[in-house]
Amino acid sequence: MSEQATDDEPPPPRRPRRIWPWVLLLVAALLALAAGAVSAVLAHEVSQQGSRTLRIRYEVTGTAKDVTLTYSTWQEEALSTGRLTLRTLPWAGELETKGFMNGGSFVVSVGRSGGEVACSVTVDDGTRRTDRASGAFATATCSGF
C-alpha cells in the first residue's frame, strides 16, 4: 500500500517567518542615518571655524639668553611652522589666521646657557595656554590652542 495524502490529513506546518534579519536591517539603516547626520554637523562646524579670522598672541618671558621658538598654526587651510632664535627676553608676537583648527603648538627651548622661560599663547576666543621651564636644554610647551 502506498502512502498518499488524503483530504483528511492536515497540511504540513508552515515555518514561521524570521523577523531578526529585518530588525538587523532596520538597526543598520538607523546607524547609517545617524552617522550621516553627525558628519553633516561636524562638516558645518569645521566650515564655520575655517572661515573665521582669529588673532593669536605668543609671549615668552624669563631670564634665558639663548632661546629657540617653534610655533605652528593654520594658514590658508595648511599647517604653517615657524622658527625664531632669541638672545633677549621678553618677546611677543601676534598673527591673524584663517582656517584655524585646534591643535596649534608653541615650543620654547632653552639653549646650553640655561635660564628660565615661560610661554603663553592667547587666542582671541579666550583660549589661553601657559607653561614654564628652567635649566639648560629645557622646553616649555604651550599646545592645544
Rank of each mutant, 00 (worst) to 15 (best):
T127H: 14
E77L: 12
R18V: 07
V27L: 12
E76L: 11
V41T: 11
A136E: 14
G111R: 12
S134M: 01
R52I: 08
Y71L: 01
R14L: 12
R18Y: 08
D66Y: 05
E77A: 13
L26G: 10
V27N: 02
G93L: 07
A29G: 15
E59I: 08
P16W: 03
G50L: 03
E94C: 06
F100K: 09
C119K: 03
N102K: 14
L26F: 12
S47Y: 05
R57Q: 15
A35R: 00
L69S: 13
E9I: 04
R55F: 10
V108D: 03
V27G: 08
G82I: 00
A133R: 01
T63A: 05
D66G: 05
L69I: 13
E94K: 09
F106V: 00
R14Y: 08
K65A: 15
V60M: 11
V46G: 01
G111I: 10
A34N: 03
P13R: 12
G135S: 04
G103L: 09
G82S: 06
P90E: 09
S120P: 00
V60P: 09
L24P: 04
A32Q: 04
M101D: 13
T68V: 15
L69D: 04
C119A: 01
C119S: 03
T70S: 14
G126W: 13
Y58D: 14
G104N: 08
E9Y: 01
L89R: 13
A92N: 11
D66A: 08
E116R: 13
L26Q: 06
R52Y: 09
E96K: 15
A29K: 07
P90R: 13
T122F: 02
G50H: 14
G114N: 10
A34Q: 04
T61I: 09
L89E: 10
G126D: 04
G104Y: 05
A136K: 10
R87S: 15
D8R: 12
W91R: 15
S105C: 03
A118M: 01
E77W: 13
D7P: 02
